[in-house]
C-alpha cells in the first residue's frame, strides 16, 4: 500500500533563499511524524507548502496519490488535510463554539438561499454541525468554554481550540505547527495524551515541535531539517544517536 502522504523533491525559494531544498519523505496512514530542526530550518514553510499557502517551485506533494500542488488551502482542507498555525490564528472575537464550527464549514452544504430562508435541511445540518463541534470541544477539553470568546482563552487553551477546529473538518491528516508552544508542563502532558487520542481515532498526525521530550515521546518517525535540507530521517532512537543531528543542534546552541 502506498503511504498516505508522499513528498518528492519539494523545493521552495524566497528570492535568493532556498527555504526548502529538495526534500522527500513520506508518512504512513495512522502514524505520528515529527518534523524537527533549528529555527529557520524551513519546517513551517514545509507545512505551508503542504497546506497550499505557498506553491512549491519544484517537486510534488501526493496525498492519497492525488497531487496537492496548485490547490488552494480550502480545497486541501476539503481533501482531508487540516492544520493549526504556529502563531495561533483563531477568530478571537467569535465564541469558542463558533471557532469549532468554522472548521465544520467545509463539510456542510447549505447555500445562500437555504440559509436565508432556513430550510428544514439547513436547520438539521446546522444542528448536527453544532453537535459535532461540541463533541470536538469535549474531546479537546474545552467543553466548559463554549460561549466564551476565543480571545479570552489562555494560550494553552487557544492551541487546543485550534486543534478542535481542525478536527471538526474530519481530517485524514492533521498538521500541528508547534502545538506545545507557550504551554507549561502539565498542559504539555495533556497535549501528549490528546495527540495520541487523535491518532487512535485513525487520524494521521504530523507535527513541528521544539519540545524534544514531547517529540521523542509521541512520534514514530522524525524528519530533521537544517537550512531547508533534510539531514536525517528515522525513529526517535535513531535520530537521538545521529551525529549530524547532534552537530546541527549543538552547533546552534
Amino acid at each position: 500500500m502506498n503511504p498516505l502522504l508522499r513528498l518528492t523533491n519539494v523545493t521552495k525559494r524566497f528570492g535568493g533563499l532556498i527555504a526548502v531544498n529538495d526534500v522527500s519523505f513520506s508518512a504512513d496512514e495512522g502514524s505520528i511524524t515529527g518534523i524537527i530542526g533549528p529555527n529557520g530550518a524551513g519546517k513551517t514553510t514545509l507545512f505551508n507548502l503542504l497546506t497550499g499557502n505557498y506553491a512549491p517551485d519544484g517537486g510534488d506533494i501526493l496525498f492519497r496519490d492525488v497531487s496537492l500542488v496548485g490547490r488552494k488551502p480550502h480545497e486541501i482542507v476539503a481533501l482531508g488535510v487540516a492544520r493549526t498555525f504556529q502563531s495561533i490564528r483563531l477568530f478571537t472575537s467569535l465564541s469558542v463554539l463558533e471557532n469549532a464550527l468554522a472548521g465544520r464549514h467545509c463539510r456542510m452544504r447549505a447555500g445562500l438561499l437555504a440559509s436565508m430562508f432556513g430550510t428544514a435541511a439547513q436547520r438539521r445540518e446546522e444542528q448536527a454541525a453544532v453537535d459535532r463541534a461540541v463533541r470536538e470541544l469535549e474531546f479537546t477539553g474545552l467543553a466548559g468554554f463554549l460561549n466564551d470568546t476565543a480571545g479570552s482563552l489562555s494560550y494553552g487553551n487557544r492551541r487546543l481550540l485550534e486543534i478542535a477546529r481542525a478536527l471538526a473538518s474530519d481530517p485524514i491528516l492533521i498538521a500541528l505547527d508547534e502545538p506545545a508552544g507557550s504551554m507549561n508542563q502539565p498542559e504539555t502532558e495533556v497535549l501528549v495524551r490528546l495527540i495520541r487520542a487523535v491518532r487512535d481515532r485513525g487520524i494521521t498526525v504530523m507535527l513541528i515541535e521544539h519540545d524534544m521530550g514531547l517529540v521523542m515521546q509521541v512520534c514514530q518517525k522524525l524528519i530533521v531539517l537544517e537550512y531547508g535540507i533534510k539531514i536525517a530521517e528515522g525513529s526517535p532512537a535513531e535520530i537521538r544517536d545521529n551525529p549530524r543531528v547532534i552537530e546541527a543542534y549543538l552547533g546552534q546552541d
Partner: peptide, 24 residues
C-alpha cells in the same frame, strides 16, 4: 447560518478562514 459565520471568519482573519476550509 453557515454562510453568515463564514463571512464573520473572513472579516476577522481571511488567512485563517481559508486555512480552516472556507473558500474565502
Amino acid at each position: 447560518s453557515r454562510v453568515g459565520r463564514a463571512l464573520s471568519c473572513i472579516k476577522e482573519d481571511d488567512t485563517a478562514a481559508e486555512g480552516c476550509g472556507i473558500a474565502v
